[in-house]
């Protein structure tokens, strides 16, 4: 792969200024010095283009040039024309990847040729196939060394493009326990009926939760604040925590009751008089649904909530 010194110099200068930088013709002329003629510059560029060391792209109405690394150029140089064209399109798709059907439409090649090229590129480890969470049935290709974007992988909640509900449930539970522990004092040493923190008690900050999760190593990958925020949103939807001010949370008492972490009145160590008073003042409420016994004896005796509509 021999090229003239001047062309080599131009390529080196282009690479020095940035891998992805686009150069206009005048900028390139400045790089080589004003003494270089336009026709000479064109010659060098043609030389580089022949060796696949630069590529052309259009920005607005202007034609621009981009330097390609020698390794990449060698890669493309070793490919046949069809492969190179496909490779170019895949490269242009970046972290999003490109669907085979789009590839076929863009290259205007026969399906058979596209498949053959893809196979060859894949076996050379130039490209890889990825599964998209958005479109699970599509075959999507991107460059071998490129990390797929969050849109494609679905973020940390997806394992092999499947929503990892077990992982999410574990994290949600850990976060809830952390917030609940900070929101409610232990009642054993204080008042067994109810022990609460004063109203001014600060809640738990989103950053605290993020630090706790990342330090506890519950997750193998580091989770960002936005990831933890979406887990907290799930907890809010579950009415397990409340957002008192933006990014500050407190656990709800109802969630503690539902977990069975509070004792039943009958099991509390309180004076008999207090117990009798509390028991006699209990009335049915839907919030106690966990502690009520379901009466499922005879089917004919069941009354359904929706019996009016299903009559």
């Amino acid at each position: 792969m021999s090229i003239s010194d001047q062309a080599n110099l131009l390529h080196l200068k282009m690479r020095d200024l940035g891998n992805n930088k686009l150069f206009s013709q005048s900028e390139l002329q400045n790089l080589l010095g004003t003494t270089t003629k336009e026709s000479e510059l064109m010659m060098y560029l043609q030389e580089l283009m022949n060796k696949k060391l630069t590529k052309l792209s259009k920005q607005g109405d202007e034609i621009k040039f981009q330097a390609i690394s020698s390794e990449d150029a060698a890669k493309v140089f070793s490919m046949n024309n069809d492969e190179a064209m496909i490779y170019e399109h895949i490269e242009a798709s970046g972290r999003e990847g490109i669907w085979t059907k789009t590839l076929k439409a863009k290259t205007n090649l026969h399906q058979h040729i596209v498949s053959k090229c893809l196979k060859s590129l894949e076996s050379n480890r130039y490209i890889k196939a990825v599964k998209s969470v958005k479109y699970p049935t599509r075959k999507i290709y991107m460059l071998y060394n490129v990390q797929p974007s969050i849109d494609v992988t679905g973020g940390p909640w997806f394992t092999d493009s499947e929503l990892d509900t077990e992982f999410i449930d574990t994290l949600v539970e850990v976060i809830w326990r952390f917030i609940a522990n900070k929101t409610f004092p232990k009642s054993d040493d204080n008042n067994p009926v109810q022990t609460s923190y004063i109203s001014q008690h600060p809640g738990v900050d989103l950053d605290d939760v993020t630090n706790m999760i990342n330090q506890s190593k519950v997750s193998s990958i580091e989770l960002g604040v936005s990831d933890i925020r979406s887990l907290c949103d799930v907890l809010i939807f579950d009415d397990k925590i409340e957002e008192i001010t933006t990014g500050v949370f407190k656990a709800t008492w109802q969630s503690v009751i539902e977990k069975g972490l509070n004792k039943d009145i009958k099991d509390l160590h309180i004076p008999r008089e207090t117990m009798e008073y509390l028991l006699s003042n209990q009335s049915y409420s839907i919030f106690d649904y966990k502690s009520t016994i379901e009466d499922l004896n005879e089917e004919s005796d069941l009354i359904y909530l929706d019996s009016w509509i299903n009559e």
Binding site: N190, I198, H201, T274, Y277
Partner: peptide
Amino acid sequence: LTKKIVLTGSIQTGGR
């Protein structure tokens, strides 16, 4: 408020 219930210790400062 009824004297049958005890409020002692029901509110904690959380060590603040």
